[in-house]
């Protein structure tokens, strides 16, 4: 564990807590993409299959349970909670996210480190996580009026993988043979997808005006 990875995990945890806070307190998920939340539930379900087979640390297992629990409860809230589900703008959240799942699965079957069931699903979760934010970014472009909590959620979610890139650089420099091109490239693509959001987020923060994404 290094400071970059801890910062990344804490940022990731904060992003999930901000979203849960928003949905639970104001009983609204306006501006939140259910598609992205469903993709993240799949990412964690396929990433953490080893939770029963390999134990790294209390921290690792605890965080996996938190990420699994929060992502599935957010999907539950948005789909089934009587008040929250009414605030979900279904007409705007129309990204065909299943078109992301299949290519990621095919790519994982083609490019992986080991051809085993767990490894292919784990690789699939890396590819899917890289693109999981797309429905949310598309929704933000459409709804344009981004409330603070949703903006913070996307900002923190993008920041966590940025910290992970620093963690991978640190581990490459300090641990011999720590070379994982698949993880690195997927993580880089993921962070780059946030680049334009980050740009407009900082612009709005600097000029102290409401976050507006160009149409």
């Amino acid at each position: 564990m290094n400071i970059f990875r801890l910062a990344g995990d804490m940022t990731h945890l904060a992003s999930v807590l901000v979203l849960l806070l928003k949905i639970h307190t104001i009983k609204s998920c306006a501006g939140v993409s259910l598609k992205t939340q469903e993709l993240y539930a799949i990412v964690f379900a396929t990433r953490y299959l080893d939770i029963f087979t390999s134990f790294y640390s209390i921290y690792n297992t605890l965080m996996k349970l938190i990420f699994l629990g929060s992502s599935f409860s957010i999907v539950w809230y948005m789909r089934y909670h009587k008040t929250v589900r009414r605030t979900y703008d279904r007409e705007q959240d129309t990204f065909r996210h299943w078109f992301l799942v299949l290519p990621c699965l095919l790519l994982a079957l083609l490019i992986h480190e080991k051809f085993t069931f767990l490894e292919v699903l784990w690789t699939f979760s890396l590819y899917l996580e890289a693109v999981a934010i797309l429905p949310q970014l598309v929704l933000l472009q459409r709804t344009r009026n981004i409330d603070n909590l949703t903006g913070q959620y996307v900002f923190l979610l993008g920041g966590y993988r940025g910290f992970y890139i620093l963690n991978w650089i640190y581990r490459y420099l300090t641990e011999p043979h720590f070379v994982h091109w698949i993880t690195w490239i997927a993580g880089l693509v993921q962070t780059l997808l946030y680049a334009d959001f980050f740009y407009y987020y900082f612009q709005s923060w600097k000029n102290n005006k409401k976050l507006q994404l160009p149409a």
Partner: peptide, 10 residues
């Protein structure tokens, strides 16, 4: 797990 294992990450 091997020390260079990336699976210890979240």
């Amino acid at each position: 797990p091997k020390d260079d294992d990336v699976k210890d990450e979240l």
